[in-house]
Amino acid sequence: MDLAFIIIAVLTLASAVAAMSLRNLVHCALCMVMTFAGIALTFLQLNAEFVGLAQLLVYVGAVAILIVFAILLTRSEDAKKEVRFVSSSTVVGFGVVALVAVSLLAAIQHTQILPPQSVVAPHVSVKRIGEQLMTNYVLPLEVIGLLLTAAMIGAVVIAMREPDPADSVDVQQRNGSPLKLDPDSKKTAVVANE
């Protein structure tokens, strides 16, 4: 085995374990980023340049930042609570892991493993990937594009929801309306305090 592969594999696995077991959520997220980077490096080692770099760009560049933002914006004191080792979520987690492992094992069992000598690393250029995407796989590509557009529009709609003007008037009246804009005044930027 390659020395570089061993180093990358150990780093990836160690950071994955750390991502699960550390207490501080931000540390977990950072360890997960390391796992993503390790996976990207594995792809690069397999001469899958495009996939490796896309992994780096999408997971380290975007997903990691998303996770970090989510942690920072939603962090509460729950993170410090004592974790019970047998709970419904643990059971469900182990169930999912077992299911994935069994299906992976089954897939590996049914794969015809080629002898290493016969593997000729095909040099797939980015241009060929692009051509394939635009010819053979154009329909899946378009569907994914549509899906992402729909998701983005949905996100915009959720973010755009503004407080109802009637509500704001109600709030003003309830608070006794200390601030009033004087529409007749020519001095537009002045808020008269009455």
């Binding site: 931000v26 950072l30 980023v33 980077a37 990207a40 340049e49 495009f50 770099l53 896309a54 780096l56 760009l57 380290v60 560049g61 975007a62 990691a64 930042i65 970090v68 920072l72 250029s125 980015v126």
Partner: peptide, 24 residues
């Protein structure tokens, strides 16, 4: 690299993470 410019942006996006690490 065959995908040089992709590499450029891929590693460039990693800088955001370090900025977050520094700030946090």
């Amino acid at each position: 690299l065959d995908a040089g410019i992709l590499f450029f942006f891929a590693v460039g996006s990693a800088t955001e993470l370090s900025v977050f690490m520094a700030g946090w």
